[in-house]
């Protein structure tokens, strides 16, 4: 099923922050992780991911550093910052509000 573009855009920030909270990661791995967690339902494009990462970096929610991969290749890793963790908590609450509201209306339908 195709998830709408707006929804993907809206959920990108909390997903990225949540993944980076687990451990530091880089672009390619983040996309793979999202795919895995959503059971192949959410497939992000690079054109979408990197601008979001860079925007989060600019907002000082995450930071980046260069490191070498096992194959000796330059890789740009991202790490979550204190303010990013706070932002994640905030987003979590907001999504929970949306989620619980939606679940209630849907359970009433049944």
């Amino acid at each position: 099923m195709n998830v709408s573009k707006d929804l993907i855009a809206a959920s990108a920030t909390p997903l990225i922050l949540a993944i980076l909270k687990e451990n530091d990661s880089y672009g390619y791995a983040i996309i793979k992780r999202v795919k895995e967690m959503s059971e192949n339902e959410l497939v992000w494009t690079e054109g979408m991911l990197y601008p979001v990462l860079h925007r989060l970096e600019e907002q000082l929610l995450i930071e980046s550093y260069w490191s070498k991969s096992e194959a000796g290749r330059q890789r740009k890793y991202y790490r979550i910052k204190e303010s990013g963790l706070n932002e994640l908590e905030l987003q979590k609450k907001q999504w929970q509000i949306v989620h619980s509201a939606l679940s209630k209306t849907w359970s009433e339908e049944e």
């Binding site: 494009t45 690079e46 054109g47 979408m48 990197y50 601008p51 860079h54 925007r55 600019e58």
Partner: peptide
């Protein structure tokens, strides 16, 4: 898979 380069570059332009 990486997608249309014009689109990527356009997305980046918004940030940079």
């Amino acid at each position: 898979r990486l997608g249309n380069l014009d689109a990527i570059s356009h997305e980046f332009a918004k940030v940079n």
